[in-house]
């Protein structure tokens, strides 16, 4: 499975944020799940919950016990993401996919260190104030600073600010 679902998820999340939605859903797959968890770690989303076609009630989002995924219900599972807003502005204003199925962009550790300090490297522009970049590495989907901590490079998925 390629980065197609991540690219789609990026566009969907930006649209949902601009539409001021409180809760939105992504297709349930491993890539989306890892990206959603990385966004959660970076503080861009409130909650990540796997549920059916209808979201769990808002008050139960954090304490929700998802039913185990089985062969019978896996096709109807979705990832429900709680979106954040602050000062009448979405916290996740801009979500730009970097890699797409027709062109995968990878970055080495050196490139990442430059980009994270705001300088351009190769095809990548430097990060701006408050901007995050998510990578798919062999340690999972990581934010660029996490990847630098772990000293791993990888496939650049998207930039979020």
């Amino acid at each position: 499975m390629g980065v197609n679902s991540v690219t789609n998820a990026c566009a969907h999340l930006q649209n949902a944020s601009r539409a001021r939605l409180g809760l939105t859903s992504l297709p349930n797959n491993k890539y989306n799940l890892r990206l959603a968890l990385a966004l959660h770690r970076a503080g861009f989303v409130n909650s990540v919950t796997r549920a059916g076609p209808h979201p769990p009630p808002p008050e139960a989002l954090l304490t929700f016990e998802p039913e185990p995924v089985t062969n019978t219900n896996v096709a109807t599972r979705r990832l429900w993401l709680g979106l954040k807003y602050w000062n009448n502005e979405p916290v996740m204003k801009k979500v730009t996919p970097v890699s797409k199925p027709s062109r995968l962009v990878t970055a080495t550790l050196d490139e990442l260190s430059r980009v994270s300090r705001g300088f351009p490297a190769g095809h990548l522009k430097g990060l701006n104030l408050g901007e995050c970049m998510f990578l798919s590495t062999d340690r999972g989907v990581l934010e660029v600073r996490e990847a630098l901590e772990r000293k791993v490079g990888g496939l650049v998925l998207c930039r979020v600010s």
Partner: peptide, 13 residues
């Protein structure tokens, strides 16, 4: 211009 404080508060960082 973006305000770093606001961004940090928004993300809980």
């Amino acid at each position: 211009q973006p305000d770093p404080e606001e961004i940090a508060i928004g993300r809980g960082k």
